[in-house]
């Protein structure tokens, strides 16, 4: 008797979706592209599929990848005061806290503004490229996607951009400040990172990793 019950439950479970923030349970129904399934109780967006989202995300991820690498090494800001000149890259800024215990802060800053965003982009491409090409998912794709999601709050490129604006105003009356190529690259980068996060429908990714053969819409 018990077996029957549990197998009945198994069939049912695939047709359920549970809101991760408030635990409300819904019967699963896939929304059409461009529509969104929203939790009625806490208004969290549960599913938001888009047409060709995978392709868009990969394109953006590729752009972000090259921009991060470029922005990290090219001069970012230059400063000029009474004949003294100084040009810094983002990597220099991140590694500004040197000496003593400050080195930890240096590493943390470098991670938050360069390495975490970079790692997320690489993981995203690793997970999504096979899925979009209708191939079986890459090895450890599930673990890779989990890692990428766990790093989401620690990717702080956009906050660094605002920090730049504040720093510029602080220095502006002390010396003449100029923008290097990396500054503009970083500006574009921030927009792309935000766009990438809003394209991504996590449920669709999980679903396609679980049912690799299923035709993506």
């Amino acid at each position: 008797m018990k077996d029957v019950v549990s197998s009945e439950l198994d069939v049912e479970l695939d047709g359920l979706i549970v809101c991760p923030t408030c635990d409300a349970t819904y019967r699963f129904e896939k929304p059409a592209n461009g529509e969104r399934a929203v939790c009625q109780r806490c208004h969290k967006v549960l599913i938001a599929p888009r047409r060709n989202a995978g392709l868009h995300i990969i394109a953006v991820a590729l752009a972000v990848f090259f921009l991060i690498i470029g922005a990290a090494f090219f001069p970012f800001l230059t400063i000029d005061a009474a004949g003294n000149r100084n040009a810094v890259s983002i990597l220099d800024a991140a590694l500004a806290f040197s000496g003593g215990p400050m080195i930890f802060l240096s590493l943390a800053t470098a991670a938050l503004i360069i390495f975490v965003p970079l790692a997320r982009v690489i993981l995203t491409m690793y997970v999504l490229v096979p899925v979009v090409l209708d191939r079986p998912p890459a090895r450890h794709a599930i673990r890779a996607f989990r890692l990428s999601e766990a790093m989401r709050p620690w990717s702080m490129a956009e906050i660094f951009a605002i920090g730049c604006a504040v720093a510029l105003v602080k220095v502006a009356d002390l010396a003449h400040v100029g923008f290097g190529p990396a500054f503009w690259m970083f500006g574009v980068l921030v927009v792309l990172v935000v766009a990438q996060d809003s394209f991504m429908c996590k449920w669709s990714v999980w679903n396609s990793l679980e049912h690799p053969k299923a035709k993506r819409s």
């Binding site: 500004a96 800053t109 920090g163 504040v166 720093a167 400040v177």
Partner: peptide, 13 residues
């Protein structure tokens, strides 16, 4: 923190 990082890297004249 980022402001401090940028300032201390940049303003080394």
């Amino acid at each position: 923190i980022f402001v401090v990082a940028i300032l201390s890297a940049l303003v080394q004249l």
